[in-house]
Design a protein around this nucleic acid. Structure first.
Lengths: 210, 210
DNA sequence: AGTTGTATGATACAATCGTTTGATAGTTGT
DNA sequence: ACAACTATCAAACGATTGTATCATACAACT
């Protein structure tokens, strides 16, 4: 079951689609990488686009679990829990291991949506962001304007996404040692979360006990 | 001079490259839009890639003036001046008029650099960011750690870039009227600049007189 | 007037794309 | 044992790509 031809094709296609995009990827290249015949893609997936849809679906579903699900552990400070969640996400996004191409593929679709998968991605993202927004009910005072809440959230993800997509020009901007020392995923997460709490402080639910 | 064939081709190619990307754009389409013969591109620019280089260069040079150049007007608060600069940039990036495709093309190259123009863009951006960084010497205390300065800057542009590239899924996340009311370029700029100053306050040069 | 150089035109080219074909094994069911 | 079905293969298909060719039209200069 784990080594069917379909699986071989999907696994071979993922990184290629991620690196080159849908248009620039050729079925011949994918078939060569998967070591299957040229006709296999059309045989199993109907078309190149059909393959792409399956690749994207399987990639997304295996990448971003809904980290915000489940009952929050109220015994620990909200700030700590929130940081951990964001740090986990950041590490996922910046993963350099075998799954690096996954976030690459998702970001590609996010920045340049395809007719095939744009809507599906939109559904996922919307659901995801609504969960995050609801999660923050624990922090924000009910009187907080909607747009403040959203902008605060977008500040976090905007920054993280920036490092992800524009990180390639960081080496020429920030000195090597500073980058090595202060621009690891955990520290980026720490900074954006701290920024979040600093900005959002006036809208906090229970005033700080000072 | 303004209506040479080269110019007609470049002006026709710009929006098409911006919308579809280099690979998906066909020379036939560009020639049809410019109302020139198919051979014109190779005749004047050598190749499709040669055309793209010229398009990108002319686009970038006409898009982002170095807003931070010139002597700062010390008579007004730094905060106000900085906001105006960022707001101006934001409005440029979100321009919906005839130049909308320009930022689209640049962002495309920024997120998915081409062998042809990636390096050139990198040079521009680096120069640009160094100017911004130096501009902030007026605000930051000299003891401020480098990485704090950079992360603060990246927070601003990360957020703005986020709205630019992921704005297409905003309508489904944020209610229409809130979006119309609070997510205009000026307000986005205001929020990110305020976030910047809130976070950077501890590193301010002359302590606030309170 | 005649030559030279440049600009534009229709068309052809080789390469590559996604997809289809038809043949050939291999497996399953009866 | 034979029929029916599935999977895989090499090869070819038509369409489209970027680019090259060659003829012609026009301008400039001698």
């Amino acid at each position: 079951m784990t080594d069917t031809v379909q699986m071989r094709i999907i696994e071979a296609a993922g990184p290629i689609f991620a690196q080159k995009g849908f248009v620039a990827t050729t079925v011949r290249e994918v078939c060569a990488a998967a070591k299957v015949n040229q006709a296999a893609i059309n045989y199993y997936f109907g078309s190149k686009e059909g393959l792409y849809k399956e690749v994207f679906a399987s990639t997304y579903s295996s990448f971003t679990p809904f980290l915000f699900a489940g009952e929050p552990d109220q015994s620990r400070p909200f700030e700590d829990r929130f940081y951990e969640l964001i740090a986990q996400r950041t590490k996922n996004i910046f993963a350099t291991e075998l799954i690096a191409w996954k976030s690459q593929l998702i970001f590609r679709e996010l920045h340049d949506p395809t007719p095939s998968c744009g809507e599906k991605l939109q559904e996922y993202i919307i659901q995801d962001y609504k969960v995050i927004n609801r999660y923050l009910d624990e922090y924000f005072d009910p009187s907080t304007p909607e747009h403040i809440r959203w902008k605060s959230i977008f500040s976090i993800f905007g920054s993280i996404f920036f490092y992800k997509k524009c990180g390639w020009l960081l080496p020429k901007i920030v000195l090597e040692d500073i980058r090595q020392e202060s621009f690891q995923p955990e520290q980026i997460a720490a900074f954006v979360v701290q920024t979040f709490f600093t900005t959002a402080a006036p809208y906090r639910k229970q005033p700080t006990k000072e």
